[in-house]
Design a protein around this nucleic acid. Sequence first.
DNA 1: TTAATAGTGTCTATGAGACATTATGCA
DNA 2: TGCATAATGTCTCATAGACACTATTAA
Lengths: 239, 239
Amino acid sequence: VNETGRIAVTTDVVLLTVRAGELLVALVQRAHEPFAGSWALPGGFLDAGEDLAEGARRELREETGLDVPAESSEDPSHLEQLRTYGTPGRDPRGHTVSVAYLAMVPDAPDPVGADDAADARFHAVADLALGGAGGGLSLAFDHARIVADGVERARAKLEYTTLATSFVREPFTLADLRGVYEAVWGSAVHEGNFRRKVLSTPGFVVDTGESVATAGRPARLYRRGPAVRLHPAVLRREI
Amino acid sequence: VNETGRIAVTTDVVLLTVRAGELLVALVQRAHEPFAGSWALPGGFLDAGEDLAEGARRELREETGLDVPAESSEDPSHLEQLRTYGTPGRDPRGHTVSVAYLAMVPDAPDPVGADDAADARFHAVADLALGGAGGGLSLAFDHARIVADGVERARAKLEYTTLATSFVREPFTLADLRGVYEAVWGSAVHEGNFRRKVLSTPGFVVDTGESVATAGRPARLYRRGPAVRLHPAVLRREI
DNA sequence: TTAATAGTGTCTATGAGACATTATGCA
DNA sequence: TGCATAATGTCTCATAGACACTATTAA
């Protein structure tokens, strides 16, 4: 009883960035049915013989012009697999299994719609209807759920990894880094304790010795350190 | 350029249990090519219109006779999605995307091989070649990697969730529960501190008031509590 | 001098690690 | 009575939260 040939495989990308203290997600406006005109995650069908992460990168590039390069000392951008969604009925065209990826990138220029996308733009996560309370923009398919899962993954990973540095360009100030935590968590982070925590964690950030002017006392500039996991974790306020 | 029709979708299950202080994984001996005779994870092709978790449960049942019921107050067994593996070349028959699931169940009778499986059995995780050091049993496909990912997920989740209770039948003693941690982590856990931690975490376990005889002083019996996440986490020894 | 922001110091409560001690059953 | 295991108590150290204070620039 193997009808597997009728199942399609797609990839979708939840690309998050922080701009002006707001957590943003890249969305495309669908050009075709189903859900024509609705906002959705960039993504599409995987090619035969194509790696999953490569498919995700390609669809993101084709539909938004955004590129998530492989991790390097040059670019802090991060791409990881999020989860796979395969509930029958999630796509009215037929049974589709979607492998979702989660990307975190520093503030980028607004994406450009192309290919199957009529438009592409960053939307504030706070403006979306993610299954919680009332209003907000509704997304196509089950993409609201996927965005919600991606945001929750990002929130959790800020606690026990150095992923916050994926959202900022080097060099950065501790205020920049704290701003990432506040935007992603949506809550204030105590400045003095945050500084003590970050600086006392070996390899989280590296002091450049330089400073940058601000409205007050100049802020010291840092680069990403070699650490990946935080021991112990930076804890967000308990619920 | 959409050749998606040629991509097959499968599910595989990493089913873990603890028996006699050892962490075990359910494996089946493949009856057919490719990898005929090799040990592999239970799994197989997803049916069109079938939910991913359902497919995983079905393949597990067909090939091993093991059942992972939906979570309930009766049965502590747990099933969650692990990760999706889709590197081209991972299956010599063609491009296959496998959605792996991770199950944790209390000590179960040895599975029975059936369907596409010539045999089915629990193997000690420690006896497998998981990409680390030298020897051990080699698995078919990329299943060693999948098992390694599953074990690492289980290890991590014991820290910050109450999942350890999925490995024991009720009622259980704190020594039973501690045995789960030691088997999964592969390291000793301090008894007094463990007890203090578990009992001071609201909702982790519920005292039944009853006891069971041991070789020494009788041990008090507990049931699972309503808590799911641990705040703060039970920390395993740092690396 | 004041506003604004960066950065430091300190008190306290909590919890983990280590270890000693007591409790309760059985042979 | 002694052995084995369960259960409790206590000392110390590390760290998070809260908060007060100092430093450094620009207007």
